[in-house]
Amino acid sequence: MSKKPIIGISGSVQISEKGLFAGHRRACVGNNYVEAVIAAGGIPFIIPINADEDVIRGAVDAIDALIMSGGHDVSPICYNEEPMQKLEATFLERDKFDSLLIGEAQKKGKPILGICRGVQILNVVNGGTLYQDVSYAKDVFIQHFQKTKSDDLSHSVKIDKNSFLGDIFDGEETGLINSFHHQILKDVAPGFRVIAQSPDGAIEGIQKDCDDNLIVGLQWHPELLAANNIPAQKIFKKFIKYVTEK
């Protein structure tokens, strides 16, 4: 592929709360994703939430790879559990859209990078489950939703050097990341393996073992770090380099 690859970014919906357009739905995605893709050499292509399977198939046809962005809690309905007390806001419309998007991308062999909610829905779509809150997981003690700025580094992760992340932190087995989530992966989906964990054992990254495609998910937010953080920049550059050479 000689041209810049087109990187689809899954969108969400923002609802205006006040004024003339109160209740009005706006298609949206965090601009940090857009900026990170451009800086890494890709062309961002925002895919808005919709329920039309033909439109979703057409969108996946039009892109070279897919980034699943962050957002709401994944509904436990998607992994056959009842809602627990600490579950936060869910968005079933987006769960369905994301599931169709991931399924279509996997079917067509498009590389996928899941970020925060993106890794969670990627895991669930492929048969995994989630802890609805970190407090329901045994021995998890790290602050996983940091109280500092979004581009501050919060805690460490240990990475699998034989994975997509192997050279991200200059070949080191640990690195520093930011953290903005209250749910974590529980049962890892069949065919995926853990490639990053925080010191308390929380799963911070997974990767699908397949020779002909790259499917990886990260629990942190490299797009919020990418303006100034080299490892975060490397994540997007390595992903887009893979897409370009695929």
Rank of each mutant, 00 (worst) to 15 (best):
I67Y: 02
L214A: 13
K234E: 11
H72M: 13
Q219W: 05
Y79T: 01
F97G: 00
Q207E: 15
G8D: 12
T244G: 03
G41E: 05
H144P: 03
K138Q: 15
F169K: 09
V140E: 07
K158E: 14
S154F: 07
M1E: 09
I215T: 13
S69D: 04
Y33Q: 01
S163L: 10
D151F: 09
L130P: 01
S135T: 13
A196G: 12
Q120L: 06
P83D: 02
H144I: 05
L113M: 12
K161S: 14
Q132G: 05
V74W: 02
D170M: 06
I7D: 02
I195V: 14
V74E: 02
C116N: 09
K147S: 13
N32K: 13
R26C: 09
N50I: 01
Q146W: 05
L224F: 11
G118V: 04
K18D: 15
L165D: 02
I56L: 11
E82W: 00
C78I: 01
P111N: 12
I203P: 04
F239K: 02
D187E: 15
E204T: 05
N126D: 03
A62E: 13
F145G: 02
K108C: 06
I56N: 08
I38F: 04
Q146K: 07
I43D: 04
N162G: 11
A196N: 12
A51P: 00
A189W: 03
Q183P: 06
C28D: 04
G70C: 11
V140K: 14
S12P: 04
S198M: 10
Y33G: 00
D152N: 14
Y136R: 12
E88F: 09
G171E: 10
V34Y: 05
A40K: 02
S150D: 14
L113I: 06
I47W: 04
G11Y: 06
E93L: 09
A196K: 09
G8F: 10
K108L: 14
V124L: 03
P190L: 14
F141H: 15
D64S: 06
N50H: 06
E104K: 14
I203L: 12
I159A: 11
R26I: 07
F97Q: 01
V124P: 00
H144Y: 07
R57C: 09
E245V: 04
V243M: 04
S154Y: 08
N228E: 15
M1T: 10
L20M: 10
E104Q: 13
C116E: 05
L225T: 01
F91T: 02
L165E: 02
S2C: 10
D52C: 05
K3Y: 10
N32F: 05
I77G: 00
D133T: 06
I235H: 04
W220K: 07
K4T: 03
V119D: 01
G23I: 09
K238T: 09
Q197C: 11
S99P: 00
P231F: 07
L176H: 10
I121M: 05
R26K: 13
K234F: 11
T90N: 04
M1S: 15
A62D: 08
C210G: 12
V34L: 12
K161H: 09
P48M: 08
I184G: 12
A65S: 14
P222G: 08
I195K: 04
S12Q: 08
L224H: 08
V37N: 00
V188K: 05
A89D: 15
A226P: 01
G19A: 14
G41C: 07
S16E: 15
D73R: 05
P231R: 08
N178I: 02
Q120K: 08
